[in-house]
């Protein structure tokens, strides 16, 4: 075998591998989406690998009869409250970690990383008792407060890396020309950090949108979308729904998340590529 065929072969193997990997990720999404709009007779026809006739009946039923639309509304409200509280608390902390030197900083940073790892969802179980006392049980605020605890370490770490990326000199220049430290932050650092913060907000939204354990435990009638879907679909509690409803549900759940990541994909590595040092 000469060098050129060897080279071509290597290239072929490489692209086959890439193609396989991409197919393994993408095909399940496409298939379940197609099935979500398929007629049951197509789905149950063993001869038809891919459906040929489509309907929006099941997505509609799910949304309007089975309460998915309310679920979406609730999910959005919970996610927005989560973003508001976690950013209000997280941005100052992230800024402090990025721009100040102070004793105990490493310890604080490390404990925030540790808290990010801590199984906060499971902590929702004992939280139920408190929520009953505080009348927070089965409220969206209650869910959002728990989601904030889950998202907050993430927000602190991300905002600190975003702020660290904005040169302190720019802010100092603002201060030299007459702004206070606070004003300098709002007029200079914050606008420069805005795109990164927007991406962080999207990720926080997706985090809350996808969370099911806390939402299922803390609510009964005001369920978020995943909690609603889980109670409809899961065999153990709610009795299994027909298969085609499951696929319709999957479609409703993944659509906003995939759209968000498309816009925020530039920030993927900033968002997740934090190594522990």
């Amino acid at each position: 075998m000469n060098d050129e065929t060897k080279f071509m072969l290597k290239k072929l193997i490489f692209y086959t591998f890439i193609f396989t990997v991409v197919a393994w990720i993408v095909i399940p999404i496409i298939i379940s989406t197609l099935y979500g709009f398929a007629l049951p007779r197509d789905y149950y026809d063993p001869k038809k690998i891919l459906p040929t006739s489509f309907t929006i009946k099941y997505v509609k039923t799910l949304l309007f009869t089975l309460g998915a639309l309310d679920g979406i509304k609730n999910s959005v409200i919970v996610a927005l409250i989560t973003i508001t509280i976690s950013f209000a608390l997280g941005i100052p902390a992230g800024y402090a970690v990025a721009k100040f030197l102070f004793p105990g900083k490493d310890t604080i940073k490390l404990s925030i990383v540790a808290l990010r790892m801590f199984p906060i969802p499971v902590m929702a179980i004992p939280l139920v008792v408190l929520y009953i006392k505080l009348n927070l049980i089965d409220t969206l605020l209650g869910v959002a407060l728990a989601h904030t605890a889950m998202a907050l370490p993430f927000v602190v770490l991300i905002t600190s890396s975003i702020f660290a990326g904005v040169s302190t000199e720019l802010e100092e220049a603002g201060m030299v020309f007459g702004l206070t430290r606070f004003g300098s932050f709002f007029r200079i650092t914050l606008p420069l950090a805005l795109p990164g913060l927007a991406a962080a907000a999207m990720f926080t939204f997706v985090m809350s949108w996808n969370e099911v354990f806390v939402a299922s435990i803390l609510t009964l009638s005001h369920r978020t979308l995943p909690a609603q879907i889980l109670s409809i679909m899961a065999g153990a509690s709610g009795g299994a729904a027909p298969d085609y409803y499951k696929f319709a549900a999957a479609f409703i759940m993944i659509l906003p998340a995939i759209t968000f990541i498309f816009f925020a994909r530039k920030y993927l590595v900033t968002m997740w590529g934090i190594t522990l040092k």
Binding site: I29, N210, V212, M233, K246, A250, M253, I261
Partner: peptide, 20 residues
């Protein structure tokens, strides 16, 4: 493509794989 699943919840992933 490789990062799409980052945004897909465990519930949705379960449902998607049920379709397969």
């Amino acid at each position: 493509a490789l990062t799409i699943p980052l945004t897909i919840s465990d519930v949705a992933a379960g449902l998607i794989w049920y379709a397969i």
